[in-house]
Design a protein around this nucleic acid. Structure first.
Lengths: 181, 181
DNA sequence: GTGAAGTGGAGATTCCGGTTCCGCTCTTGG
DNA sequence: CCAAGAGCGGAACCGGAATCTCCACTTCAC
């Protein structure tokens, strides 16, 4: 059985790492994660065999949360799929994508992550497809491309959900009738 | 006077570096630039005192080209400023932005680059402003924000000008009347 | 109070890219 | 054609940065 403070610290490490990765991308060092969490590096290595293992666990946890969120929203039959997409976009756990990217940088992504990733992507593509059917999203992109656009927009480090780029991209994804000037 | 082959090689180095930076971002190593150019690293250092100097020169050259291009287009009174913006976007020399970013990573950007950069940004903002006036671009962004969006879209490593993100962003920048689904 | 679990952080280790150096090659002017 | 010296290649060197180890010390739980 794990001591209470140890469990707390483990949690704290994961939370801190998630925040830092989110706002500054996957390059953050172990040293910095430790410091920000108010712990020593030694403690990180007590809880995770190495950096990769930590990142992996983080990716899994957040991907799983994201999948669960999407699934539950999908089940409750939303009025419009566009609204659903917005809701999902605003869900806070987009960081795993960047994490996966960071993992992929060195060695092959572990199968558990790859599977989760595919499932999430599939769910999103399904939503995008339905949004196109209901006429709220442009149809000249495949659902997969639309998801790709969403990923690219939302996974930048420190992406705020209300910055101009995000706004512009979302409007660009809408079904529109661009007027000739 | 510089030997002819040396001049050729200098040129070759700059071209190669530009290509690599463009397609893979500012992290490319000297080693790799040399190899791709079919030269040894030693040769890079014969032509430039250090990496920074090389990147700087590259940034200056390309920024200057970009500025000239924009200016000349601006002078010939285009029919629509939107078209002008598209034209400018398609101009191939967007990489300097990434280069500047890379420079800014370590030490302060040299004044010559900063100046050019500001001038280019100003020109673009002017174009964006006029596009808004003529009604071809959405008005709920400041011209500077619009330029920022453009930068962010076009400066990604390996950004293709015809990939879905670019398309979506451009449409999103248009003056549109989004339909309610 | 005791000892096992947990922690901190200095420093060893590894990695990786920039930079130097020097023997060799190639251009060029005479 | 032939020096002379400009130019070249790339192995070796160097330094910084990040990961990971290790152990004296602290804290928790019983």
């Amino acid at each position: 059985m794990m001591r209470a403070d140890a469990r707390r610290n483990r949690e704290r490490i994961l939370m801190t790492a998630l925040e830092l990765f989110t706002e500054r991308g996957p390059g953050v060092s172990m040293e910095e994660i430790a410091q920000t969490a108010g712990l020593g590096v030694g403690t990180l290595y007590r809880h995770f065999p190495d950096r990769r293992a930590m990142v992996e666990e983080l990716a899994e946890i957040t991907l799983e949360g994201l999948r669960t969120h999407i699934r539950s929203r999908l089940e409750e039959q939303p009025e419009t799929y566009w609204a659903l997409l917005l809701d999902v976009k605003n869900y806070c756990a987009w960081q795993p994508l960047a994490l996966i990217a960071s993992l992929a940088g060195s060695a092959p992504v572990p199968p558990s992550c790859a599977k989760l990733w595919d499932e999430v992507s599939e769910l999103l593509a399904e939503i995008a497809g339905r949004a196109q059917q209901e006429g709220s999203m442009r149809r000249d992109l495949t659902p997969e491309q639309a998801v790709g656009v969403l990923y690219a927009t939302v996974c930048r480090p420190a992406s705020r959900f209300d910055d101009p780029l995000t706004t512009v991209v979302l409007d660009g994804l809408r079904a529109t009738a661009p007027q000739e000037p």
